[in-house]
């Protein structure tokens, strides 16, 4: 009876059996498609570099490296230089990094070093993550109608009383570097905080226990043990945050004032590479498009280098703590 049962199933050949020809074909096709898709990812980056580079080539031939050191952007005379934009990009990102970095790392300490119970820590982490979810344009709008009016009295006071310091050398006449950098700081805060939290979490708990066992106060443990141990992870957080700040576009295009000048003043309008692209691209003619492609290439190279450094530091940290290859 039992043997019959088996025979029946074997003859029906539905339950088990070697893969049919159809299965083999499906298998190879599917694997080929997956392989293609993975390669597409790499090709995409290559294609992006090729396209932007290719479109920038005429401008590169025309302008040479003078493009990077030039300070005028005059479409009619065909003069293009992006030094003020490079300056504005680096200056605004650096300011944002200082503010966002201090806040981000402190918030990471706040979340990981037993300041809050687990439940409250989760709530606070959600708040920080929600900050990352708010679109850039909405921050721009908020900056125009909330932050700038809020900053103006303080900025004017600083200019009036401390105007001899170059940082406060001009009045805040509306959009300018200070509101742009502040909004940028808010926008990179979640990135910095999230990566820093990871860095602190990676430290084995016994390290902290050992420090407390030696009789340190909470802050001695944090400053002398936790921070140095997490330092490479924190560095990665800061570098990747910086990379994010460099490429941020919309909020800056709305807040920085798009003024082609190099100034140390926090309240002067400035410009960044990304906001130059955003404000000039839609109405650009053929020659200007080439110059803008060149500017895009400069932005691409800067952010690429910063991001690769950040990723490398992050990788190094992971290896250090987990012995991962």
């Amino acid at each position: 009876m039992a043997s019959n049962h088996f025979q029946n199933n074997a003859s029906a050949s539905t339950l088990s059996g070697p893969p049919s020809t159809g299965d083999y074909i499906t298998d190879s096709v599917f694997r080929a498609v997956a392989l293609t898709c993975a390669s597409l990812l790499i090709l995409l980056l290559a294609y992006i570099l090729w396209e932007i580079g290719g479109k920038a080539l005429p401008a590169f031939k025309e302008q040479g490296l003078g493009f990077i050191t030039g300070t005028t952007w005059n479409v009619n005379e065909g003069q293009f230089g992006v030094l003020p934009e490079i300056w504005g990009t680096l200056y605004s990102s650096l300011l944002a990094l200082i503010i966002g970095g201090i806040f981000g790392v402190t918030i990471a300490i706040f979340l990981t070093q037993d300041f809050l119970g687990n439940r409250f820590a989760a709530v606070f982490r959600t708040i920080v993550e929600l900050l990352a979810a708010i679109p850039s344009v909405v921050f721009g709008l908020w900056g125009i109608y909330v932050l700038i009016p809020l900053l103006r009295p303080a900025a004017d006071w600083l200019h009036e009383h401390l105007g001899f310091i170059p940082l406060f050398g001009t009045e805040l006449s509306g959009p300018g570097l200070a509101p742009a950098a502040l909004v940028l700081a808010i926008m990179i805060l979640p990135t910095v905080a999230a990566i820093s939290v990871d860095a602190f979490r990676r430290i084995p708990y016994k390290v902290k226990e050992a420090a407390f066992g030696m009789g340190t106060t909470r802050w001695e443990a944090i400053l002398k043990v936790m921070l140095p141990t997490a330092s490479s992870g924190l560095l990665a957080a800061l570098v990747l945050g910086f990379g994010r700040a460099l490429g941020e576009t919309m909020a800056l295009a709305m807040l920085i004032g798009n003024n082609n000048q190099i100034s140390l003043s926090l309240f002067a309008p400035a410009d960044t590479l990304a906001s130059l692209l955003a404000s000039n691209f839609p109405e650009a003619g053929a020659v200007e498009v080439q110059a803008l492609m060149y500017a895009a290439m400069v932005l691409l190279v800067i952010t690429f280098v910063v991001n690769v450094i950040g990723l490398a530091v992050q990788q190094y940290t992971m290896r250090k703590f987990e012995g991962k290859k």
């Binding site: 392989l35 993975a38 390669s39 990812l41 790499i42 995409l44 980056l45 294609y47 992006i48 396209e51 932007i52 290719g54 479109k55 990747l240 990379g243 994010r244 460099l246 490429g247 941020e248 576009t249 990304a274 692209l277 955003a278 691209f281 498009v289 803008l292 492609m293 895009a296 932005l299 691409l300 952010t303 690429f304 991001n307 690769v308 950040g310 990723l311």
Partner: peptide, 28 residues
């Protein structure tokens, strides 16, 4: 090797300025 490169590319692309995606699409 392909997977390692693709992973690295994906990570760098997440940090890419979003406006460059626009510039790229404009070009193609």
């Amino acid at each position: 090797k392909l997977a390692k490169t693709a992973r690295f590319v994906a990570k760098t692309l997440t940090g890419f300025p979003s406006i460059l995606a626009g510039v790229f699409t404009y070009a193609i």
